[in-house]
Amino acid sequence: MITTRFTELFGIEHPVVQGGMQRVSKAELVAAVANAGALGFLSALTQPTPQALTAEIERTRTMTAKPFGVNLTILPSLNPPPYEEYVQAIIDAGIKVVETAGRSPAPFMPAFNAAGVKVIHKCTSVKHAKKAQEVGCAAVIIDGFEAAGHPGEDDIPSLVLLPRAVDELAIPVIACGGFSDGRSLVAALALGADAVSMGTRFLGTEEAPVHANLKQKLLEASELDTQLIFRKFRNTARVFKNAIAVEVAEIEKQAESEFGDVAELVAGKRGAVVLESGDMEHGIWWAGVSAGLIHDIPSVADLVARIVGDAEHIIRQRLAALTI
């Protein structure tokens, strides 16, 4: 058993987190993570309305009696979703841990605090992590440059960004970006983290609600099979390298290109088709460089047990043997 500030503060058996993934973090996956003794997050905005989120929370509870949370990603938009209503739905459902990402959760902290909800904010820089601590977050997730999604604009990998954050913060730090197995869990703990958060690795599990073709792509992938896009627009994103991702990157190289030139290619509705139909070239889909470390598609229970078991073995056997 590996016990950290994270496991103690959040009442979780293992220091492993399944981050909120748009269109992926649904009841089947999150319940399996919870039952395995890790912490899983439903994706609030995967649900079209706050009422649908309430129903998904209740559906998850029919599959597990263990703790799980909800991810709320807060992004600038011309037509933003009703964030306040989603927050209230989370609170009314009795959820006690929320993962936020994107903009600061500060506007919603009074409501979460009043309801006894612990907030974990996902950050891509030490500056933002310190701000999250300042506004009252219980913990932060630190996204290294290896991560899928939006890893920030500083290009700092986990090996440096993680201990920098640990040095600056008093609250628990959860490592994200490149973590996928027992070896990387031990590395994160050695760097001062209290847990690891994984997205890409959980995509490659039996319970992940995505097409089998996507899981096969992960099995075939190396660490070279991701593509950075949106660099020109200062909104860097790491996705799987397919024809669409490469086309977007090539358009960005054109001197006068604007986001509107790629908007249709990267539309969320096209990504949804990828996950549901298995047409892996129809749109972009998220993947981190840890895809190169995925060699099987286990159940969530087997994956979590293997990660923790391997980490315990490394700590007790290999590392202990290196000391005098």
Rank of each mutant, 00 (worst) to 15 (best):
W285I: 09
A272P: 04
K96E: 01
P81F: 10
G199C: 09
N113C: 08
I307L: 06
R234Q: 15
K217R: 10
D302G: 07
L53K: 09
V160K: 14
I307Y: 01
M63L: 14
S197L: 09
A34H: 02
Q18N: 09
E146K: 15
A170L: 14
V119T: 08
A138W: 07
I294T: 04
A139Q: 03
T100K: 05
F6I: 11
A38R: 00
S299P: 03
I171Y: 02
E146H: 13
V87M: 09
L75C: 13
M198E: 00
S197C: 11
A38T: 02
V97A: 01
V24E: 00
K118D: 02
E207L: 03
L75D: 06
Q317T: 15
K269R: 14
F112H: 07
H313K: 13
E281V: 13
G149F: 01
V186F: 05
K130Q: 10
K130C: 14
T4D: 08
R164T: 11
L265F: 08
L159E: 11
Q88T: 05
L72P: 01
V140P: 01
D261H: 10
I229M: 05
A188T: 06
H313G: 04
V70I: 11
D194G: 09
Y83K: 13
V196I: 14
G278P: 14
A195K: 01
L219A: 09
Q317W: 11
K131C: 07
A114F: 10
N79K: 13
A170N: 11
T100Y: 00
R306Y: 04
Y86H: 08
A32G: 06
V246N: 07
I315A: 06
S184M: 04
Q51I: 07
R306S: 07
T49R: 14
G149T: 07
W286A: 05
F230M: 09
I57D: 00
N113F: 09
I251S: 09
L293T: 06
K26H: 08
G152R: 00
P172I: 12
L319C: 08
